[in-house]
């Protein structure tokens, strides 16, 4: 993005506020994500509840960002990289809101898990998936803060890896289900958790693509 200042200072201020809102919305996601990871490892019900509660703040942020973006479009009729940024902010906020939804789903599934299943060695694959998505989230946030398309690019191949891992996880737990009837609800929850993380990863990629578009004007493929 062009870093020269606008002659109109309120325009500058509004663009800055929009960016700050996107970044603080991502910070809320980061917090919930870290809690989800920890709640999964420790089977911590209270942490799960806190994730579900903080989803409202995330939803509210989306409304704030949409309003601000509409306001900027109306008042300043932005063009060029400003226009790409403002319009993409709306789509990025929508994606972040959905990141929050996936974290809620994950939290709800963790609450259903039986502690014993967490001892199974295959659960490590889910931890790997968490790490993968966490890395993507970090690149995405950094890219928004620094207007760095290459930072966003770092995020792109995570999606494929997450998809592969999630597939593997499904295969493993479907197989376990056929051997252990009693464990079925647990294995199903683990599969759902893996799928949600995979979708989380996919959304991070979408956001990264939006950032690349803002910075380079190359459209998403």
């Amino acid at each position: 993005m062009n870093i020269n200042s606008h002659i109109l200072t309120p325009f500058n201020d509004d663009l800055k506020e929009l960016k700050e809102n996107l970044s603080s919305m991502l910070t809320l996601i980061e917090t919930s994500f870290n809690r989800a990871e920890e709640a999964f490892v420790n089977n911590d019900q209270a942490l799960c509840d806190s994730i579900i509660v903080s989803d409202e703040a995330i939803n509210n942020k989306e409304v704030v960002i949409d309003n601000l973006a509409m306001d900027i479009l109306l008042k300043y009729k932005p063009v060029a990289s400003d226009l790409r940024f403002v319009v993409s902010s709306i789509s990025i906020a929508k994606s972040i809101e959905r990141l929050g939804d996936h974290l809620c789903r994950i939290a709800k599934q963790i609450k259903k898990l039986d502690k014993s299943v967490l001892m199974a060695p295959d659960v490590e694959y889910i931890k790997d998936l968490f790490s993968l998505a966490k890395e993507q989230l970090a690149h995405t946030k950094e890219a928004i803060l620094t207007h760095d398309a290459s930072e966003a690019g770092e995020c792109l191949d995570g999606e494929e890896r997450a998809k592969e891992t999630s597939k593997q996880i499904s295969a493993i737990f479907v197989n376990l289900m056929s051997q252990d009837n009693e464990g079925i609800p647990n294995y199903l929850s683990l599969i759902f958790i893996a799928r949600s993380i995979q979708r989380f990863s996919k959304l991070c990629t979408n956001i990264a693509e939006d950032i690349i578009y803002i910075e380079t004007s190359k459209p998403n493929q």
Partner: peptide
């Protein structure tokens, strides 16, 4: 020219920035 100007000076002008 208005969505993806090639020149920095064009972008500064059309988006109302200090050149």
């Amino acid at each position: 020219l208005f969505s993806n100007p090639k020149n920095k000076r064009t972008e500064d002008y059309v988006s109302g920035r200090f050149g």
